[in-house]
Design a protein around this nucleic acid. Structure first.
Lengths: 180, 180
DNA sequence: TCACTCTACCTTAGTACTGAGACACACATC
DNA sequence: GATGTGTGTCTCAGTACTAAGGTAGAGTGA
């Protein structure tokens, strides 16, 4: 890609500083991994841009929407559960729930068996909003991912699931283990 | 997944607020798309965490590293070219290049044919740093993506490439077109 | 019951950006 | 040359978080 879409008026005139280009010489295996990492990031970013723009129409960020969706489909959850589910920091979940409370979509509820803990639960307004926007959000995602046939989506999901689980399970530091 | 890994001491006692759970009823096609979106995001986040931690050892963010890598492999580029390649805002590229200049890894160079434009180019220090850290970064990615066999990586990359291109080409607004 | 440790949440300061707009210059047309 | 439009970069305010640390309560064992 990027076959000189622009700036090709005259390669000689427009690229006077070729100086410090360095060749990429790696094994085929490494090359495959690097390429997968690039396309994985780009695909995620491209879909994310659509999803983000969609929920922004209702004044929500993608992370806020993820919280609402989790609470909608699973019912009230402890803040810590939500945090682990949507992968934000502990400070982040406090901040995000505060914002959703301020918008009237979520409320905190005491946990009777643990006075440290709080549930996050949708308010009636929150339920109403999600009931309204979830279907169109799902439809939008279906369009954004529509370049792949359903069976290809299943196939890609299976590969990515294995990939994600293995990467998440790996020690973040050096992770030199390669136990199959 | 998430089959009550925690908080299952006593489901009755620990989950006293099942109240507002709503069933997810969508077509199989929609379900496939939703699931793909979730695993795509999670896989990207998991790998990103590793990549990010790796470059952080050298005081770099992933975005900064992406710029250095692009300049290393392709040579000096106009700021706008770099911006489109690594997908940041126009303000972002100015900010990021400023930071890399402050670190002594990159320098701006005038463009002789367009006085508005600037090249970003690696300094000798920048070249040296990248020559040193790129191989281990690539090896780390190879490990992080190692759950997939090379041929599976190629397969996944092909699917994600189609997915990403189609999603990126789609109009961000409503995009009701479905022209094959 | 005392001490210790662990967990759940919150607070605060900081970071890595984005978005909107401004400015200078390039280019095309008159 | 004058004028309008598009492009490349920068500025600045704002946003969506993260990281580190703090407090309160829960759980465990002497």
């Amino acid at each position: 890609m990027a076959q000189r879409t622009k700036f090709d008026v005259d390669p000689v005139e427009r690229a006077p500083l070729p100086g410090t280009a360095h060749p990429l010489e790696v094994s085929e295996q490494t090359e495959a991994a690097l390429k997968l990492w690039v396309v994985l990031s780009r695909a995620q970013a491209a879909v994310s841009a659509h999803a983000s723009a969609d929920v922004a129409r209702h004044g929500l960020t993608l992370t806020e929407f993820a919280i609402l969706e989790a609470l909608y489909h699973r019912g009230a959850m402890l803040l810590g559960e939500v945090q682990r589910r949507i992968l934000v920091s502990s400070g982040g979940i406090t901040f995000l729930v505060d914002r959703l409370v301020a918008k009237g979509l979520v409320e905190r509820q005491a946990c009777p068996s643990d006075r440290r803990a709080r549930y996050a639960a949708l308010t009636p307004d929150g339920v109403g909003l999600l009931r309204r926007i979830f279907p169109e959000h799902a439809a939008m995602l279906e369009r954004a991912l529509g370049a792949l046939e359903p069976h290809e989506q299943v196939e890609a999901a299976a590969l990515l699931k294995r990939l994600g689980h293995a990467a998440a399970a790996m020690d973040t530091q050096h992770a030199h283990f390669s136990n199959a």
